[in-house]
Design a protein around this nucleic acid. Structure first.
Lengths: 208, 208
DNA sequence: TTCAAAAAGTGACAAAAGTTACAGTCCGCC
DNA sequence: GGCGGACTGTAACTTTTGTCACTTTTTGAA
């Protein structure tokens, strides 16, 4: 297990790995499970060892808006700055590929920040990367119309999954982008006509 | 001057204040000036002593999308995690009320994080607050139509300026929300009819 | 094999937002 | 007091997006 940690988080120092090992709880989640709900109290920082997790922002009427993926080697930025306070989660995290995650008690965060240079750098880097990713999401919704937002969304899925065969239904894309299935179907058809994608049932082949 | 720092940043320890004092450069900016441009290299962390600064996200075609205010006692979150790397600014910051800011060289960031508990807590808190604010901005554009986005925008202006008399033209609101002046005029008129605002030239009186 | 549910295609229409065009109003300045 | 520029109001129109209704296709389970 420490070998796996070291492999997935190569920047961590050996002492840090030891410390994590001494305090870790490893949990398995299967696809479809919800790791964290909006409003729930955050007690742990989450480090992803395996699988894929989609992070959403929710509104009051049940809408879900996709923000980013958590992949192996990454961590939930928000859970890292909740400090000791009784902070509630501002996001919802859903497992899409069977996942294995390390849960680190929040109480250790501050200590490790001071003790472990590699942890400090990881946290700061995580924060910066997430912030920048969220800014790009803002760009797409603030400046772009739905057709471009869809392209942006598909490109991110390709990046995140490392595959050009996306296993997604029009319905799922629609709810990730907070629009309707019909709109997505319409736009995908146009993209197919432009030669950017090939459509199959439950699968989209990206040619871009 | 150290008194002013202590007053505006009451959580800072005396040692931290001394350290800042030893390294600070204080700069004045007048309304309309741009403190930071998109793509510019970040060399300093910015602490606001006085005035008001609006932070924008820009797109390639000259569009500007308002994200949040920087007020006295606050700092630019993004400039705090740029670390030593040659990071480029992802945002644009425009002074709207004559401002006085402390510029702290980025090179000191890491050191202070380790040395000064109160700096560490300030940075982490800044990060959390900005992230949460940005998430709310995402909510407004992802889930809400323009009429509700406008209300959200006006409420934030009231909060930020501490006044219910907003000195804003329809044009400025339109470009902050990345829409046209006409749309804003239309929606404001409707809000006036609903009794939520009173419209004047270059000024909106908020009754909510 | 059949049947129900999920997925996808599509036309028709409604609503929201963006665009164009122009008129009226207020303000500071000469 | 008059002039030019910035600000605001508004009608008419287009485009984009959302919604409704219905069909067809595919898949998996009984």
């Amino acid at each position: 297990m420490p070998e796996q940690l070291k492999k997935v988080f190569p920047s961590f120092s050996n002492e840090l790995i030891q410390d994590i090992k001494a305090n870790e709880v490893i949990k398995d989640f299967s696809a479809g499970e919800i790791i964290m709900r909006t409003g729930q109290y955050i007690k742990n920082t989450i480090l992803v060892l395996k699988g894929a997790i989609k992070v959403y922002r929710e509104d009051d009427d049940g809408g879900e808006f996709f923000m980013y993926y958590l992949q192996p080697g990454q961590a939930c930025a928000l859970s890292m700055v909740c400090a000791t306070k009784n902070e509630k989660s501002q996001i919802m995290a859903k497992v899409v590929d069977d996942a294995e995650v390390v849960m680190v008690p929040l109480s250790l965060m501050d200590k490790w920040m001071m003790q472990h240079r590699s942890w400090y750098e990881f946290v700061v880097g995580t924060y910066r990367n997430r912030f920048e990713e969220v800014l790009e999401v803002i760009d797409s919704i603030a400046f772009r119309a739905m057709d471009e937002r869809l392209e942006f969304y598909l490109k991110r899925q390709v990046e995140a999954t490392g595959s050009k065969e996306l296993k997604l239904s029009h319905q799922e894309i629609g709810s990730d982008l907070n629009t309707s299935r019909e709109v997505i179907s319409r736009l995908l058809k146009k993209m197919e006509q432009r030669g950017l994608v090939v459509l199959h049932r439950n699968q989209i082949e990206i040619l871009m």
